[in-house]
Computed example of a mutant assay.
Amino acid sequence: MESYEGKTPALGDHQARQLLEAPDGTTIKGKRDRAILATLLYHALRRDELCRLKIKDFKQERRGVPHLKVSGKGGKTRYVPLHPAASGLIHEYLDAAEHGLEDTGFLFRSVSNNRIQGSQKAITPDAVYKIVRAYSEKLGFKIGAHSLRATAATNALDHQADIAKVQEWLGHANIATTRIYDHRKTLPEDSPTFKVTVDEELEALPTDMKARFVWISQLIETHGLYNVREPYIKHVEDVLWEIRMKSKDEISRALYVTVKPKRVIVVRVFVKKTQKTPRREIKLALKRAQEIEQ
């Protein structure tokens, strides 16, 4: 059987929020679908793991913290902390569906089975796939349920979660599978080649220019990127900005891009003879900036 691990795109934060808000929260189906989407997104479950969840699995507690009991691949069981947002949505669904007291019954069911007491028919993995597909397609990004697992895994690793803990959370037998979601070491701006180039350019600056660069960098760090203006920084064009250094005899610039809020990547450092930034330097900086975005 083919695995989807590593082949599925992760959602951005805005897309994930849109998806969670897409179902109609005034209907049983909408409440159920919101709970399903939140359970997938916040706990990185596989479709079949979600379908196997029973009411009692939702009521687990370990060391005073609510947990989900997940029956994973190969009959392995794991416990994952229950996210408060998902917990609230599941409670809303169970209150509306009226099967919350059936501990041995399945948590997520087809809408037609919600009010049949004692019904053991769970929602199917295919139905879960169609739920995610339908809501995402309406929002303009057509994805499958595994994208929510990929989103959860990537987001956890991007926020510096320990990869061994993420492996356990995902239920991976091999940590190599978990590493597929770890993009922290594959960012272009972090490549040794890129770092050596810019570091060498900084090192080539005159001593007083380097000191000025460090001072302005500290100014940005202390006061925030958007609170520092000319004569220290200035917009050049497109995504490109410049840190402006000047000594008694020379002028230099450090061209940079903002890849994330509060994160600046310097892409080109050089000394120039006039106030005007040469076009060739702008072109080179933009080329390096494009490499970062890829």
Rank of each mutant, 00 (worst) to 15 (best):
L37G: 05
L37W: 08
L37F: 05
A38C: 06
T39R: 02
T39V: 07
T39Y: 00
L40R: 02
L41G: 10
L41N: 02
Y42V: 00
Y42F: 15
H43R: 00
R46F: 00
R47P: 00
R52W: 00
K54L: 10
K54Q: 15
I55C: 13
I55D: 03
I55M: 15
I55G: 07
I55Y: 05
D57M: 03
F58I: 10
F58V: 09
K59Q: 15
Q60A: 12
R62S: 12
R62H: 11
R63H: 14
G64L: 05
G64H: 06
G64F: 07
V65K: 14
V65E: 11
V65A: 08
P66L: 07
H67A: 03
H67T: 05
L68A: 10
L68C: 06
L68W: 10
K69I: 03
K69D: 00
V70P: 04
V70I: 15
V70Y: 04
V70R: 05
V70C: 08
S71Q: 14
G72V: 06
K73T: 08
K73L: 09
K73H: 09
G74V: 04
G75H: 07
G75L: 03
K76N: 13
K76G: 09
T77V: 15
T77S: 10
T77L: 13
R78G: 00
R78V: 06
V80N: 06
V80M: 03
H83Q: 13
H83E: 13
P84E: 09
A85I: 12
A86M: 10
S87N: 11
G88A: 15
L89H: 04
L89E: 13
I90G: 03
I90D: 05
E92L: 11
E92I: 02
Y93L: 00
D95S: 14
A96Y: 05
E98Y: 07
H99L: 01
H99Q: 00
G100D: 08
L101K: 14
D103I: 08
T104W: 04
T104P: 00
T104I: 04
T104A: 09
G105P: 01
G105C: 15
L107A: 12
R109A: 05
R109Y: 08
N114L: 03
N114A: 06
R115S: 12
I116L: 09
I116P: 09
I116T: 15
I116G: 11
Q117N: 11
G118L: 07
G118E: 11
Q120S: 13
K121Y: 01
A122L: 01
A122K: 03
I123K: 00
I123R: 00
T124F: 01
T124S: 15
T124K: 10
P125W: 02
D126Y: 11
D126F: 02
V128S: 12
V128H: 07
V128I: 13
I131G: 12
V132P: 05
R133T: 09
Y135N: 08
S136H: 07
E137I: 06
K138I: 02
L139P: 07
F141N: 11
